[in-house]
Amino acid sequence: MKILYFAWMRQRIGASKEDIDLPGDVTTVDALVDWLVARGENYSEAFVKREVIRAAVNQEYVQFDHPIKNSDEIAFFPPVTGG
């Protein structure tokens, strides 16, 4: 699975993207965040306010209960501030 991070999520995690092998029991965005947070302090700090983070699966906004699979591209980022 390809994971992308933007803006201060990218800075806190220390990477703009990474490829992971999605564990079989991680089947939703929420479960993926739990799994990432357990990997280290940089992740737990980046996801500390989970309710403000937006997620996109294959470049479409999703809720955190959205199902995911290993072939997906998933992105995590703060609320957008363009324009």
């Binding site: 803006a7 980022f77 703060p78 609320p79 957008v80 501030t81 363009g82 324009g83």
Partner: peptide, 21 residues
């Protein structure tokens, strides 16, 4: 403003600050 995935970082004399939504 609410849908397009852009983020603004403002550089000030005390460092970079991400703009809040």
């Amino acid at each position: 403003k609410t849908e397009a995935p852009f983020w603004k970082l403002e550089d000030t004399d005390t460092g970079g600050v991400w703009v809040d939504s």
